[in-house]
């Protein structure tokens, strides 16, 4: 346990000056900032639509969630899986890492957990900033009716789903990035997978849920359909989430066996 902890601290220490780490913070700040700016500058037009407060929140948060779920999230996950492994490939430091008196599982698990943590931070900031900027918009433009509805539950549930549904992709990409030191192979496979995921999720292919890349989109799709009814009444742990978690666990274990067998040439 101690080995896992120090490995995790070391992961943070190594990456704190890299783009991979800052992306987790900058991405939500920039996207939420842009959407809020859009709402601010188009305030008159939006207010003229006379949305009920819940629908206003849905439009506002949906702007970020939609982009995230379909496009940015899978690529962000692919990039994270790549960058935590690439830091060792690029510097040729795998041999040093595995020559430390730490068990191999801790080193591997710490890397994986760190990637999970970065994704969590990113999505947590998305939810928090959506909420905070919504209220900021309300303060700047008092004619909005953001203050008449509390979106916290729906935000937390949606982002929790997005987070859990992306773990399958993470584990898969993690293995690819562990095996290959170059950027193109994991990126290329991830790109093709993501496109496939988007298409299969959109056309509603009945086995789409078996492709890890389509799970974030699928999980959000269900969220949206149910918004017509009681928006708080959607379960977090749906089929997609379970599939994603199953993928994540199985691939995480396979990854560990790859690490133990990996010869450091």
């Amino acid at each position: 346990m101690h080995a896992l902890y120090i490995s995790l601290i070391s992961e943070f220490y190594k990456s704190r000056k890299t783009l991979a780490f800052w992306a987790a913070i900058l991405l939500p700040v920039i996207i939420c900032g842009l959407i809020s700016f859009g709402f601010y500058s188009d305030a008159e037009k939006i207010i003229a639509n006379h949305y009920p407060p819940m629908i206003l929140w849905a439009h506002y948060s949906g702007a970020a969630l939609g982009v995230m779920g379909f496009l940015i999230m899978p690529f962000y996950v692919i990039f994270m899986a790549f960058s935590v492994n690439n830091i060792e490939h690029k510097n040729d430091t795998w041999k040093m890492l595995f020559a430390q008196p730490l068990n191999k599982f801790s080193i591997y698990a710490a890397k994986y957990l760190y990637a999970v943590l970065l994704i969590f931070i990113c999505l947590f900031l998305f939810a928090t900033l959506t909420y905070a900027f919504g209220h900021l918009l309300q303060a700047l433009v008092p004619k909005f009716n953001f203050n008449q509805y509390n979106p916290l539950n729906i935000l937390v549930n949606s982002y929790a789903k997005l987070f859990l549904s992306s773990l399958g992709i993470l584990s898969l990409q993690f293995i690819l990035s562990l095996l290959w030191s170059d950027f193109l192979k994991p990126m290329g496979i991830g790109f093709v997978g993501t496109i496939m995921g988007i298409i299969t999720a959109n056309v509603g292919w009945k086995y789409a849920y078996l492709i890890p890349y389509s799970l974030p989109a699928l999980s959000l799709k269900l969220t949206r359909i149910k918004k017509g009814g009681d928006p708080l009444d959607f379960p977090v742990f749906t089929q997609e989430i379970w599939i994603s978690l199953i993928y994540a666990v199985i691939l995480f274990i396979i990854g560990y066996f790859i690490v133990t067998k990996k010869s450091i040439k």
Binding site: K14, K17, K90, N91, D92, T93, K95, M96, L97, A99
Partner: peptide, 11 residues
Amino acid sequence: LVEQPAIYGHL
């Protein structure tokens, strides 16, 4: 110390 020293270039 094995082969090239294992050093993180960005640190």
